[in-house]
């Protein structure tokens, strides 16, 4: 088979466009979180969208339809990858993109796996816990206050001490994770949301 230079370039171009298009579709349609999470993720528990039922019932009800993903305003909800029982269920990776408590996922859920919440203070997603060794305001290496600034319930869920050192009030914290996203400590976040939902 002999091809002229022009034909060869044309075909190569077509193939590139085709493959590029497929790759784009793959990316445009996917909303998967990495299967491997940051260190300690299993210990802290999986962070589900606000209003999610207790884990057993959540897993039974969720049909993996992705409507919560489509409804999510900050695009924080992603899907668990891999092949486990959790695969395809919604998860929030707060350090990358936290929930802003828009509460659109509840009405979007067709099965009631995510309940409709009346108020964002009802979003019992988890609880933020400060690691005072890592936090710059606590360990004396600086004055920060980023988590307080980001907190949608500031003054109630997070209060500040000297050098803006954060203190979480568990009875008010809903576990949205905006503090974790905002935390300026990079190697590991100094404030993390613990959900208590097991990964098994």
């Amino acid at each position: 088979m002999s091809l002229s230079r022009r034909e060869l370039l044309g075909r190569l171009g077509l193939a590139t466009v085709g493959l590029g298009g497929l790759a784009w579709l793959q990316l445009a349609g996917r909303s998967h979180a990495p299967t491997a999470f940051a260190p300690g993720a299993a210990r802290r528990g999986v962070l589900r969208p606000p209003g999610s039922l207790p884990e057993d019932e959540f897993l039974a009800r969720c049909i993996r339809c992705q409507r919560c993903v489509e409804a999510c305003e900050p695009r924080a909800i992603r899907l668990v990858g891999g092949e486990s029982a959790h695969a395809g269920t919604p998860v929030i990776v707060a350090e990358e993109r936290a929930c802003n408590l828009c509460l659109r996922c509840g009405p979007a859920c067709p099965t009631g796996a995510i309940a409709i919440l009346a108020d964002r203070s009802d979003a019992a997603m988890g609880e933020a816990i400060v690691d005072e060794d890592l936090c710059v305001s606590h360990n004396g290496s600086g004055v920060c206050g980023a988590c307080f600034t980001a907190c949608p319930l500031k003054g109630r869920a997070i209060v500040q001490g000297i050098y803006n050192a954060p203190e979480v009030r568990p009875e008010h914290c809903v576990g949205c994770g905006l503090c974790e996203e905002a935390c300026i400590v990079h190697r590991d976040k100094a404030i993390r949301v613990h959900s208590g939902r097991s990964w098994s």
């Binding site: 209003g51 039922l53 009405p107 009631g112 309940a115 409709i116 919440l117 009346a118 108020d119 009802d122 019992a124």
Partner: peptide
């Protein structure tokens, strides 16, 4: 009105 928390 929207459903109340937990009252599913």
């Amino acid at each position: 009105p929207k459903a109340k928390t937990g009252a599913v």
